[in-house]
Design a protein around this nucleic acid. Structure first.
Lengths: 236, 236
DNA sequence: GTGAACAACATTGTCGACAATCTTTCATTT
DNA sequence: AAATGAAAGATTGTCGACAATGTTGTTCAC
């Protein structure tokens, strides 16, 4: 995807949000997909020119990205893209496991009929995509799955913490470390989670979610190990 | 406390951080202490002039405050001080209970000797302050207590989420809703938590912490109920 | 008198320029 | 040749002004 300059048309066709919001999602994608490499320095001036805007909104976007943990900023020095390390991956998934476990317990208690049927529909969609071997939608579908459960928890601070704070970094790890060889098992786990939620069994739902996420962690960690080893040998 | 204008001396005497960092803590305190009333509108221009700086750094500070949940910003409309509601209080404490319970479990597993002796020292300090009836240090001591345990958890994302994201809003609720009539019990609970951590009993430590926080929630909720009822009658 | 449209005002969003700080380069000394 | 220091360059931090948007108050029609 090219950097999309802000034109008169895009401003009007888009719902005319603020410049920051418009470029934020684009930079997010660049980082998550690795077009901006982990650990690389970000030059405010250059980034601003790339999107045809000034440094003001660019700085605000970088601050947002820092909040989302995709960027690390140091005063008077500048911003760098976050680096992916084993230690941080473990910290991140440890926290995610607790939070999404909590979300799942709450969802089992509070989900309403409409949300539940949406969740069933998404699950069936995923199973269909799986049968068709459609790996792109598997990725997106997985994000949606967790997203919907978090929404159903009904706790706004929890939602904000997970979606506003952790989710983008998680997507970055998963995008860059994914070995797409695990969907069969993962979607079977999804089914069991939905069943537990539908049965209003909060304790079980939370437990299954924590296990499901631990599986994901192991998978991602293994892949990250390969990548870092590979990179180390490429340098020499 | 007066708004402290930034002078040449304060810049050099202070460790010469950035303007944003300097005013951020001042605005934080203003909000937490209620000098800026909950729900009131924040005017960027006025706020900038109050501290003798321009709107640029002021806007950045407001963004930081939004991240800390002390401020709500709406594009093209502006920023307001967060409002304190029963519903949000419950969401917030629900999340806090889970996160600090987790922190406590991890701390029991990972705390080192030095951190542990610091924790003991703080506990004894608190018990001494309690005997002396020193209510100001009780407040601060309680913040430190939870802070130290969070630090001892060793999970950087957890630390960032609690301290960077939730703690300031928690302090706001506690400052504005505190009925300082509970320290005896609270500090007894602190002692049991430290004992569990020292015994490396993660499960117990987490459980005690969650209970301790639930006590705090009930206390704060009750006080908030009184305040809102009081306010409603004052209007009529 | 009430409601809608419009104009005047106030506030936020964006920009370009300058100041403060950090980084790099290059000369100098040991 | 390596280390130190200073100067030049590049980058971030801050400012004031202008543009875009939201808000308020007034007028007019009904």
């Amino acid at each position: 995807m090219q950097p999309q300059k802000i034109t008169a048309e895009s401003v009007t066709s888009d719902k005319n949000q603020t410049l920051v919001e418009q470029i934020l999602v684009q930079i997010q994608e660049s980082i998550i997909k690795g077009e901006l490499r982990p650990g690389s320095k970000i030059n405010e001036q250059a980034l601003a020119e790339k999107y045809g805007i000034s440094r003001g909104p660019t700085r605000e976007a970088l601050q947002q990205l820092e909040r989302q943990r995709l960027v690390v900023r140091i005063p008077h020095v500048g911003a760098r893209v976050a680096t992916l390390t084993i230690e941080e991956l473990n910290d991140l998934y440890e926290l995610r496991s607790t939070l999404e476990g909590m979300a799942c317990e709450l969802a089992a208690q509070r989900i309403d009929e409409q949300q539940l049927s949406q969740l069933w529909a998404l699950l069936e969609q995923q199973e269909a995509d799986l049968a068709r071997g459609d790996s792109y939608f598997q990725q997106e579908g997985d994000v949606d799955f967790h997203y919907q459960i978090i929404q159903a928890s009904g706790n706004r601070h929890l939602q904000e913490t997970l979606i506003g704070g952790l989710y983008h970094l998680l997507r970055m790890y998963r995008y860059q470390c994914t070995s797409s060889s695990r969907p069969v098992r993962a979607i079977a786990e999804h089914r069991r989670i939905v069943e537990a939620i539908a049965a209003r069994d909060a304790e079980l739902a939370g437990l299954l979610m924590r296990r499901h996420i631990e599986q994901g962690r192991q998978n991602t960690e293994q892949r990250l190990r390969q990548l870092t080893a590979q990179e180390a040998s490429a340098v020499s």
